[in-house]
Simulated scan of single mutants.
Amino acid sequence: MITPADPPVPPDRPFTVRPGRKLGPIASFVGSAHRAWLDPMRESYLASGLTLSDLSTRMRFAKSKLSELLRGVGLYPRWEIVYLLATELGMPNWPLYRLWCQAALEAHRSNEWVDDCTERTPILTATHTAPPLDHRAFRELVELDYLLYAQVFLDDDRRDAAVANTFDILWLSWDDALASQDTRRYAWNVLRATVMASTPHRDGRPELGMAAFDTAALQSLDDPADRMDQITESLKLFAAMSRLPSSQLDVMVLRRLWNRPPETVSALLGVPLAAVRSDERHATRFLESVLCPPPPPTEGNTP
């Protein structure tokens, strides 16, 4: 696996000053699937320089309805208004449509409702277009490692969905990714947020139990007894790893569970090699203190 040594070159983006009232935040009850497309849409709106009045005039929708859509309040929006708003904001509609469909189901809309939103207005149905060339090249470089990372936390179906959603979100916000300090870091943050949104948590920590059957260490063992011992050892390790800070956890997943070289991990995360080594060192010390604590002092050695 070869990862990009340098992020894609960002385009020039003019600074945009938006007049009018500031858009309110996304409602706290909005689900992760809904946020997956709503966050990029809000960013596109804020970067466009358009006001709600401008969009209301162009789309012939009330400003209040557009405000509700961009804050995630009210009823889950029909595809027609999402498509029209995306068109005004210059957003690609194919990844948006796929994310919108998933979020509709999360919002307890039926498959029949989703079909009705598009079948009644076929001219508004999303067309399957290709992502930007540099987006496709980036995906080819990192997708395998993204899948391996997600596999540690999710079963096969949810793993594939999380990674596919990651690249759809990146497609929607590709200009922001390119304009960020490091595209690789931006992309990894999207992946991590998408994976963690689907990962079971216990006491606020992600569970890694399913990974015991897929790690590189386990795959290298042929003897059933050795495999059972490794599973037991791995489950203890995963319970301890779940207590690590996010940056250390990511490094240990890639380094210890999938044996990725430090240089590859650095490129995937978009962080300096020194940071990877530092995170691994601190994480290793913590895990050793949990899994191999020093023996209690004997009575003769007690001060």
Rank of each mutant, 00 (worst) to 15 (best):
T3G: 11
P4E: 13
V9K: 14
P11F: 05
R21I: 13
L23G: 00
I26R: 08
S28F: 11
S32D: 13
S32T: 12
L38T: 04
L38F: 08
P40M: 07
Y45C: 04
G49P: 09
L55D: 01
L55C: 03
K65N: 12
S67H: 08
L69V: 04
L70R: 01
G74M: 00
Y76E: 01
P77E: 02
R78F: 01
W79N: 01
E80I: 08
V82H: 00
L85I: 02
L85F: 00
L85P: 01
T87Q: 07
L99I: 07
W100C: 00
C101G: 06
Q102W: 07
L105E: 15
R109A: 06
S110Q: 09
E112F: 07
D116C: 15
T118N: 14
R120I: 06
T121E: 09
L124C: 06
L124R: 07
T127K: 14
T127N: 15
H135N: 14
F138D: 09
F138M: 13
R139T: 04
R139Y: 05
L141R: 10
L147N: 04
A150W: 05
A150T: 03
Q151M: 11
F153H: 06
D155H: 10
A161Y: 10
N165D: 14
T166Y: 02
T166Q: 00
D168P: 05
L170Y: 03
W171T: 13
S173C: 12
D176K: 12
A177D: 04
A177V: 15
Q181A: 12
D182H: 13
T183G: 07
R184F: 07
A187C: 09
A193V: 02
A193L: 06
T194D: 05
V195G: 00
A197H: 06
A197F: 12
S198A: 15
T199N: 08
T199M: 08
E207L: 12
E207K: 11
G209M: 10
S220R: 14
L221V: 08
D222G: 05
P224H: 06
S234N: 03
S234G: 06
S234P: 02
L235P: 00
L237D: 01
F238Q: 04
F238L: 05
R243D: 10
R243M: 10
L244H: 04
R255P: 05
L257M: 08
E263P: 04
S266Q: 03
S266L: 03
L269M: 07
G270A: 10
A275K: 09
S278I: 05
D279F: 07
D279C: 09
F286P: 08
F286S: 13
V290C: 07
L291V: 07
L291G: 09
P296Y: 02
P297C: 14
T298H: 04
N301F: 13
